[in-house]
Nucleic acid binder design. Structure first.
Lengths: 155, 155
DNA sequence: GTTGAAACGCCTTATAC
DNA sequence: GTATAAGGCGTTTCAAC
C-alpha cells in the first residue's frame, strides 16, 4: 500500500470527521475537489477506508462498564476453537475477541451497563460458550481513554 | 436518556453507515426527511452520537499486530497515576487504556506493525512511562473480531 | 410538539480539458 | 491535476395535524 503525504492527510482528517464534504476536504489538503474525490474513492476501493460510521457514547447510552475476560478452552483442537469463535460473535456485549499467545487462549472485551448487567451476561451467555474451561473476569474501574484512529504516515 | 424504537433504529443504521443521507435514512426508518433530520440532530446534541468517523483497515495499513499490556505501577498514589495517565495518551500506538480492578493496575491495547515494531515501541516509549514497575506483554496471534457498534435498544 | 411540502443553495459526480 | 455542468441533497421555512 503506497500512501503519499496527501493521502495520509486525507485519512487523518476523515478519521476525525467522517462526514467532511469533499469540497471542504479538498480545501484542507490543498487540492481541487475532483482530484481529492478521486483519491478518496481510490482509498475506499483499496480497502484502506473500511467504512464510515457514527460513534456513539457508551456512557450516555448507559453502557459505562468495561470488562476484560480471559478465556481458557478445554483443549486447542481446531474444532473446539471454531465452535467457540462462532458462538462468541453472537454475544452482542463482546466488543472484541483475540486469540492470544501465553497462558490464556482468548481475550474478550465487553461493554455492559453495570456489575449487575455483567452478572446477567455472564450467567446467560458467557457460561454457555462451548468448550470453555475457565473464565477470568477483570473489571475496569475507569476508562482512561479509547482511541479509534490509527496513526497514518505517508511519504 | 430516553430513546424510542425509531431512535434506536436510526442509531443502528448510522453505526453501520455513517454517511447515509438524511433522505435515505428517513426512508429506512419510515419517517419524513424533516422529522428524521430533527431526531438525528437531537441525538447529536445530546451526545449519544459522539462523532462521525472513517474506519481504516489496520491490516491493510500494515498495523496487523495487537498487543495487550498489563501495567503495574510502583504505587497507587494519585500523583503517580496522573503522571502515568498523562504520559500514556501520548503514545500513538496505544488504542485504549483502562484502570483495572484486580492484580494489575492498567491494561493497554496497542496496534503495531509486527513484533519488531513492538520491540521498538516497548523500548522507546513504554519503558519510559513514569511510575511503572512491571510491564507484561501479551501478543495476539489472531484478531477473531473487533466491533465498534454498541447494542442499542429503544422502547 | 410533531409532521409534511416546497424553495434555495450547496455538494457530489461525471465528462472534458 | 483542473474546470465545468447537471442532478441530487440538506437546509430552512411554512402550514397543518
Amino acid at each position: 500500500m503506497h500512501l503519499d503525504t496527501i493521502d495520509a492527510t486525507i485519512l487523518t482528517h476523515l478519521q476525525k470527521e467522517g462526514r467532511l464534504t469533499n469540497a471542504e476536504l479538498a480545501e484542507r489538503v490543498g487540492l481541487s475537489p475532483s482530484a481529492c474525490h478521486r483519491r478518496v474513492r481510490a482509498l475506499e476501493e483499496s480497502g484502506v477506508i473500511q467504512s464510515y460510521v457514527a460513534l456513539l457514547d457508551a456512557d450516555v447510552l448507559g453502557y459505562g462498564l468495561t470488562v476484560v475476560v480471559s478465556v481458557t478452552l478445554e483443549n486447542q483442537r481446531r474444532e473446539t476453537m471454531e465452535r467457540f469463535e462462532n458462538a462468541v460473535s453472537d454475544v452482542g456485549a463482546i466488543m472484541d475477541c483475540f486469540l492470544m499467545t501465553g497462558a490464556d487462549d482468548y481475550l474478550l472485551r465487553l461493554r455492559v451497563k453495570d456489575a449487575h448487567d455483567y452478572e446477567r451476561v455472564h450467567r446467560e451467555q458467557l457460561s454457555n460458550l462451548p468448550g470453555v474451561t475457565r473464565l477470568v473476569s477483570n473489571i475496569a474501574m475507569r476508562k482512561v481513554f479509547v482511541r479509534t484512529e490509527l496513526p497514518v504516515q505517508g511519504r
